[in-house]
Design a protein around this nucleic acid. Structure first.
Lengths: 201, 201
DNA sequence: ACCTGAACACCGTTCAAGT
DNA sequence: ACCTGAACACCGTTCAAGT
């Protein structure tokens, strides 16, 4: 034992991530433990700490992968006018979060301890998502200042996320995804109508 | 030892809840443990299970208390026209969630295990919050059907919640509460404008 | 009837020791 | 250099035993 050299550190890292993702998908974030991961990849618990500084580090990687998966879905969207594009984004986000509920909710169920700030590269991924929304508002109302555009993007993306969060957490509430999609579209459409018609921006 | 009879079961329950709330406020939800609570109320861990079926039960009580606190804040709101009332609700929710961040985020960081459904009395408290929003839309557009009103309420309340959730979790992002409040108002105001002007409801 | 204390089956994290 | 195994300081939950 010790020094098996069966896998490179990089391979081990990927194996651990894959095993962890499987556990989250099947049993939810709260069921994710270092020992379960180790058993799944056939190493001892200690090995995890060769390639991750701690569980929070590992979980941050998992969360980043989910952000990437969402971005990937958004990249599939076809090119349509901005108002419609925003609706498509909202529907895509809803679809992703309902179809990948355990991975998606991990993003919000996990919080780094107070000392550890969210790493910059992770923040950057979040920013990227916002920029896609900002681009739509920029083409919708080109005369608006950057700050106005930013506000609109944050308001509507917050709104889109919030409908997902409330609807899916209370999802026993006899609301199916189709109904939620209606709320999604309602919010986006009315906000956009208001945004275009309003002098108050 | 054993059989101290210093407190009634009801008193013990309240002491435990109070101690748990203090821990959440000071150290966050993830730092809440049965043993810490027991130490704070000067009983042994086992005693908690005399008055709560398990930690999830206790946490559900804590979450309910937070919902009550939010409702309490909403009850302080003065009587104003519906469009303005919705904005006031949004601002109140933001203020509460930023001033009571650890208690508020507990509501969304904690999830009952898959077998345990959310208790009815808890669901009811959530419904109550929605009804207050529905009432505003009812007086804003009295001719709308109940289902339209419900959709509007869920859309806008989801939106309000989502802006809080995204803004406060990424709150290092150099956005202060005043900026977020601006996004809040922007969302509500534009949605309401859109809602009133739109034939598409 | 109330409460304890100890046990059980778990955690995350560290690190001396082996190859 | 890589990996283990065991330890440490924790968890939630149960329950026989004491008063």
């Amino acid at each position: 034992m010790a020094r098996r050299n069966e896998h490179t550190q990089e391979e081990l890292k990927e194996m651990i991530i894959a095993a962890a993702e499987q556990i989250v998908i099947e049993q939810g974030f709260s069921a994710l433990t270092a020992r379960k991961i180790a058993a799944k990849v056939n190493y001892t618990v200690g090995s995890i700490y060769m390639v991750f500084t701690n569980m929070d580090d590992l979980i941050t990687q998992l969360k980043a992968n989910v952000l990437d998966a969402i971005t990937e879905e958004m990249n599939q969207l076809r090119h349509v006018p901005p108002a419609q594009y925003l609706e498509e984004m909202a529907k895509t986000y809803l679809q992703f979060s309902s179809q990948n509920f355990n991975r998606w909710s991990m993003i919000f169920e996990h919080r780094l301890p107070d000392g550890n700030p969210v790493p910059e590269w992770y923040q950057y991924k979040v920013e990227e998502a916002f920029q896609r929304v900002e681009a739509q508002f920029k083409s919708l109302t080109p005369s608006c200042s950057d700050i106005q555009i930013q506000r609109a993007a944050r308001a509507i993306w917050g709104g889109i996320h919030g409908i997902c969060a409330l609807s899916l957490s209370n999802r026993l509430n006899s609301l199916d995804v189709y109904d939620i999609e209606g709320n999604m579209v309602l919010l986006v459409r009315n906000f956009v109508i208001g945004w275009i018609n309003s002098a108050d921006r």
